[in-house]
Design a protein around this nucleic acid. Structure first.
Lengths: 66, 66
DNA sequence: TCTTTATGTAATTTATATATTACATTTGGA
DNA sequence: TCCAAATGTAATATATAAATTACATAAAGA
C-alpha cells in the first residue's frame, strides 16, 4: 500500500506538523505514514480524506504486493 | 466511525466467512469490524473496497463523535 | 555563515488490530 | 421440531499503530 499525502500537502502547501494538528495526530505519525513506515487506521485515513477533500481511494492505493 | 459492510455483503449475498476468505483475514475480524468493535487498517479497508467495487468512503464513514 | 523551519529518525511505551481457538446463539430450511 | 449454517462472543497471544520525547539533518533565507 502506498499514498500521496506528500503531494496533497504540497498542493495545499501545508507542513506535516500543520496536517497533524488538523487531523489530531502527532507529526511523527504523519511522517511515518508518508514514508510508508506503517499503515494508518481507516479512521485516520477518513480524516485525511476529509481534510483534503478527496476519497481515501484517491489518496491511498493498493500495490501488487498487497 | 461506522460502515455498512453487512449491507454490501447482503447485496453480494456472501457470508462473513466467505468475505474473510476473499480478503485474507479471519471471520472474527470481519465480524468485529461489522459490529464496530474495532477500526480496521486502511489496507484492509482498501481490500474490502476493492472486493465490493466501492470506495472506502462509500463503505466507511466518519461520525460526529470522530 | 548563522538561524530557523521542516523533515527524517530512533527508542520506548501504550493502545489496539488481528489471529487463534472455542463455544454460544440465532436463523432458516428440511 | 431438528439440523446445519451463519453469526455473535470471549480469552489469550502477537503484531503493529500511534504517542512521546528527543535528536539529527536538510533547506532556505537573513
Amino acid at each position: 500500500m502506498t499514498n500521496h499525502i506528500k503531494v496533497e500537502r504540497a498542493i495545499k502547501n501545508i507542513t506535516q506538523e500543520e496536517l497533524a494538528r488538523q487531523i489530531g495526530v502527532t507529526r511523527q505519525a504523519i511522517n511515518s505514514i508518508e514514508l510508508n513506515k506503517y499503515v494508518p487506521s481507516t479512521l485516520l485515513a477518513l480524516k485525511i480524506s476529509r481534510y483534503f477533500g478527496k476519497t481515501v481511494n484517491e489518496i491511498f492505493s493498493l500495490e501488487d504486493s498487497d
